[in-house]
Amino acid sequence: MATEADTGLAFHPMEQFVVKPLFGDGPIYWYTPTNATLWMGLTLLAIIALLVFGTRGRAIIPSRVQSIAEMLYGMVHKMVEDVTGKDGLKYFPFVMTLFCFILFANYLGLLPKSFSTTSQIAVTGVLALMVFVGVTVLGFVKNGTHFLGLFWVNSAPLALRPVLAVIELISYFVRPVSHSIRLAGNVMAGHAVIKVFAAFAAIAWIAPLAVLGIVGVYALEVMVCIIQAYVFTILTCVYLKDALHPSH
């Protein structure tokens, strides 16, 4: 093992997540263009290319690109409508923004040498906090103190209700944590595992297995990307529903 380590087998599974300035390597201020900036910008461009330039024809019989755009639209639209009801459609652009950003960031992150913005806890944390704060404010604005009924389970026996209220309260405040960590953790885990397999590929006798492993994990990641985007959005819809209709 030691000899192999000497021949240059090195694990840097986390190196891909380092935020670096794009030009030079000075300190990172809040306005410094970094690789995170670059890949967020590319995400933005990709989404605009699909949803704006792809639908330029406004064709009744859609082209391939346009039908993909329509599929995305239809999927998120249906999700919002099914989960939150008709009155949730007001927030459809917001949900669509989240879904598109996460989906495209996930997939762009799968490109070799790229930087996956959704693997950063800062990014997913902001996304989840936006949802959390937005939903909480919306709940109080729409329902007033009635929103607190979310924590007071009327269907439970009276003695159990305070206990349940505490549990509900905790689970409510854990929401943004699990919401953000789930996405970042999934993406990070996949990328780190691919990197670990890639490091193993430096050893000749294990390389075929490692390459197979990379292929397998990559395929899994392709699936995980869309599932995590879907899950993030559908949980957003569920929280939105709680805010709009807090009755249990």
Binding site: I181, R182, G185, L235, V238
Partner: peptide, 11 residues
Amino acid sequence: IGMAFAEALGI
């Protein structure tokens, strides 16, 4: 949703 909740703990 259920899978995501279960998976989150593993994550």
